[in-house]
């Protein structure tokens, strides 16, 4: 599903370059649950943004679903990621002025889904995650865990093949964090959604099927499946 080859990312600093990512080669199969780990500044988020096509590398090639991402026009790239990729953020990034229902609906608006269909899809999701009662509340009226749940539902609404999560439990307490991780695991196993998460926590990383360790912009080693 994801094939990264020789990905470099650097910033010019004076005469030299500061490397954020160096020679990243990474293949992720459909259906995988990958955790990217590493200390602060190791390039985890940059890597995630490159996978999510929000950021471009300085060098390297990227194939997503057998298509070469950097050979296509920006318009197609946006089409590609808005159809197949959902984002979950550490600080949820819900739109404050929109209700839960409207927040979840927004990606569908950008994909030109018809009104009736949109309604059905959102209601479906609200049912499934059991938050029908909260659909008219605004983000500020929800707890952190609930906000992140809405964030995940928003990422899922367009039935993406890939979910990218940047420290999804970073702002949550442990109980809320556990619920979210269980949800990811369930989505991965039952819905066959590919998940790539960035995390600091060994415990959260253990939910995944594979761990990628980054240090100073390089992949350290790729251990085999942690648990079967």
């Amino acid at each position: 599903m994801i094939e990264l080859q020789h990905i470099f990312k650097w910033y010019p600093a004076g005469g030299s370059r500061v490397y954020v990512l160096q020679d990243i080669n990474l293949n992720i199969e459909a259906g995988a649950f990958v955790s990217i780990m590493g200390p602060s500044g190791s390039g985890k988020s940059t890597l995630l943004n490159i996978i999510g096509m929000l950021d471009l590398p300085s060098e390297g090639s990227y194939r997503f679903l057998e298509q070469s991402v950097y050979d296509m026009k920006e318009k197609h790239r946006v089409e590609l990621y808005k159809k197949h990729i959902g984002f979950v953020f550490q600080s949820y990034h819900l739109i404050d002025e929109l209700t839960v229902y409207e927040n979840i609906e927004t990606p569908l608006l950008y994909q030109n889904v018809k009104s009736a269909e949109r309604k059905a899809m959102v209601s479906d999701m609200l049912d499934r995650f059991n938050i029908v009662g909260k659909k008219d509340l605004f983000p500020a009226q929800l707890s952190g865990g609930q906000q992140q749940l809405v964030g995940i539902i928003r990422a899922l609404i367009a039935r993406p093949k890939l979910i990218l999560a940047d420290e999804p439990t970073g702002n949550l307490n442990s109980a809320q964090g556990e619920e979210i991780m269980n949800l990811f695991q369930k989505l991965n196993e039952e819905d066959k959604v590919t998940i790539v998460q960035v995390t600091h926590s060994e415990k959260n990383a253990a939910y995944g099927s594979r761990i990628v360790n980054l240090l100073d912009g390089r992949i350290q080693h790729i251990p085999q499946t942690v648990h079967s």
Partner: peptide, 13 residues
């Protein structure tokens, strides 16, 4: 700005 960022991330052209 944040709203713009979110919208772009979830697929707004």
């Amino acid at each position: 700005a944040r709203e713009v960022g979110v919208r772009k991330a979830i697929g707004s052209m």
